[in-house]
Design a binder for these strands. Structure first.
Lengths: 157, 157
DNA sequence: GCGGTGTAGACAACCTGGTTGTCTAACCCT
DNA sequence: AGGGTTAGACAACCAGGTTGTCTACACCGC
């Protein structure tokens, strides 16, 4: 990046992490478009994953993703509009709605998993499986135990 | 993350990258608050860095950050409101405004660099300097040559 | 069986960091 | 002088979050 080439070491790391994340996610979505999911967004895959095979309520989804239930509700609304989930009444709780993945939702998730696995394999081929695994280990130790969202006044990223 | 513990390998990597990035940035801002910069936001540091010691125009800043000039203009407006940059006429171009860092802007940048360096050192202490450097190398090879923003229809992160 | 507390969800307003699209003014080149 | 390109302003919009308020139902103790 021009204007940043005199970076002190510490400054580079966040940029590298973000760039790698972006590289991964951009590539995922390019490939998803090609297999018939042009409207899938990054948040969708993670949400579908968090919904799980049995389904969840909106509040529980929010808890799993580490965001407010309102934010989760927006995501669910978007997923429902796109046909990735369907909602119905929750058994034994008159307040709750159960959010479940549709067949198309399952498909998106399977495709995403496939593509992510392929991308990881491509990286591993370039870096070596050992280093790849090491990176994952190290990142886990470092950023471990965090939720996706940082709560409070943090920005969208 | 509950509900995600049956992740296929590929799915974990983006999450790990994002979590590590977040860990870094959240910690940076916690510490910045403590040294008198409560309103600094993640984008500010990166923008100040991209502005460079001589100053840039808004359009050029946008180009450097890989975002539209309108987005850059918003960032500049925020930075100016917070006293981190000042704008003046550009020599030899009647259309352009030159955006320059103020003393406070320089201070924020210096503090950020210091804190990032400290955080990197903390990680390096836990992982070993060799592995730390390896991660940076590998990430560079992997996400290399990317801009911060992905353009198009990508989300905020 | 009732009352109080807690939780699910809806609704509204707002924020941040982006995006298009349109427009003016200035620059630059022929 | 005129035509294309560029800098910047302004407006509308979007995604993904936040807070805060409100209703309806659940659950627990008495």
């Amino acid at each position: 990046m021009p204007g940043m080439d005199d970076q002190r070491p510490g400054f580079a790391l966040p940029l590298l992490l973000l760039a790698a994340f972006h590289a991964l996610v951009d590539e995922l979505h390019e490939r998803l478009v090609a297999v018939g999911h042009p409207d899938a967004r990054p948040a969708h895959g993670f949400a579908l994953q968090a919904i799980g095979p049995v389904g969840v309520t909106t509040s529980e989804l929010g808890r799993r993703l580490g965001v407010t239930k309102q934010a989760a509700a927006k995501t669910v609304a978007a997923l429902e509009r796109l046909g990735y989930v369907a909602t119905g009444p929750a058994p034994a709780d008159g307040r709750a709605h159960l959010v479940r993945r549709t067949a198309r939702g399952e498909e998106l998730l399977a495709l995403s998993a496939e593509i992510f696995a392929a991308l990881r394999a491509e990286w591993a081929a370039r870096l070596g499986e050992r280093r790849m695994a090491q990176i994952e280990d190290d990142l886990d130790r470092i950023g471990g135990g965090r939720r996706l969202s940082s709560g409070g006044q943090m920005p969208a990223w």
